[in-house]
């Protein structure tokens, strides 16, 4: 941003700018290291033995690195099952959201119909509803439907998102009507127009919505904690949360390895697709 429009003392000015820039780099470097330090501790701690952690809780580098903690997760603690549960729930939730939000988004953006304003108003109001408000009736509802401890219980409440509807409506609203009219004149049905014209144009918001939904589902733990009641239905965060207050509460190395396993897939996805994460946040401003 610093441009030398003044003209005089250019070399001195350049020097000042360069020094300032160096300071900014240094400050940012320190800040980013501090921000990421907990993750470093997590990663390094996961390779330590229980004895080493107890002996020197403040130690940084592992003295005798071991992968035993990870081995325990894979063999004794059914990591594969938790991972599979998390993945199934997340994938179905993402597919449902992409489909349903883009359909209703199309209706809200391109059609004039009775009840349109009401649907949109209700969607916007629920953007602000805290999770605890619907928690109790949802629990009662799921119990009454006999769905407790099933995938359906883990998925159904999250198949729609007000944020997704808002995003899709905004984006589809920007698609020119002429494009849709042209297809109608060519005799295309509405379903065909949605599938062949609208959806292919919605790449960016669908990517953002898909990633945010996946992230929310993968990290969600409060509802799954209540809805999943036997170990075979636990998702990763539920398993980690229950273990960290239960049977292995004091085995820090094991818990840290579990934490690494929970966050590693997300961090990997994030690093490669981070454009979509930050774009979504910046344009819509909601997680």
């Amino acid at each position: 941003m610093e441009t030398t429009t003044t003209g005089r003392g250019r070399s001195l000015w350049d020097h000042v700018v360069a020094r300032r820039r160096l300071l900014i780099y240094l400050a940012l470097l320190v800040a980013v290291v501090v921000t990421l330090l907990p993750f470093m501790w997590m990663l390094l701690g996961s390779f330590k033995t229980q004895g080493e952690i107890l002996r020197d809780p403040a130690g940084f580098l592992p003295q005798h690195p071991t992968t035993e903690n990870y081995g325990t997760w894979f063999t004794r603690l059914h990591l594969g099952r938790f991972f599979l549960n998390s993945l199934v729930v997340a994938v179905v939730t993402v597919v449902g959201n992409l489909l349903f939000c883009s359909m209703v988004g199309y209706a809200l953006a391109k059609f004039d119909f009775a009840g349109k304003r009401l649907v949109f108003a209700l969607v916007m109001i629920t953007l602000m509803v805290p999770g605890v408000v619907t928690f109790v009736p949802l629990f009662v509802l799921v119990a009454k439907l006999g769905l407790t401890n099933t995938y359906a219980a883990l998925i159904l409440p999250f198949l729609t998102s007000p944020l997704g509807v808002f995003m899709m409506r905004q984006f589809i609203g920007g698609i020119p009507d002429a494009l849709l009219e042209a297809a109608r004149i060519d005799g295309a049905g509405e379903l065909r127009i949605w599938a062949r014209i609208v959806m292919p144009l919605c790449g960016p918001p669908l990517a953002t919505l898909g990633i945010l939904t996946f992230l929310g589902s993968w990290n969600n733990f409060l509802w799954p904690l209540v809805a999943a009641q036997t170990e075979d239905m636990y998702t990763l965060p539920v398993a980690l949360s229950l273990y960290s207050t239960g049977q292995i509460a004091t085995q820090y190395g094991l818990l840290l390895a579990g934490s690494v396993l929970v966050i590693a897939p997300i961090v990997l996805v994030f690093v490669f697709l981070q454009r979509y994460f930050t774009q979504g946040i910046a344009t819509v401003g909601v997680r």
């Binding site: 940012l28 800040a31 980013v32 921000t35 990421l36 907990p38 993750f39 501790w41 997590m42 701690g45 809780p57 992230l215 993968w218 990290n219 733990f221 990763l236 965060p237 980690l240 949360s241 960290s244 820090y252 818990l255 840290l256 579990g258 934490s259 690494v260 929970v262 966050i263 997300i266 961090v267 994030f270 690093v271 981070q274 994460f277 930050t278 997680r287």
Partner: peptide
């Protein structure tokens, strides 16, 4: 790279992060 670093805590599970924060 900086932006990615500062944003990483947002995408990570609170349950996982809590383990290491309790420890810290």
């Amino acid at each position: 790279a900086f932006r990615t670093g500062f944003y990483t805590p947002v995408v990570t599970s609170i349950v996982a992060v809590a383990v290491v924060w309790r420890f810290i």
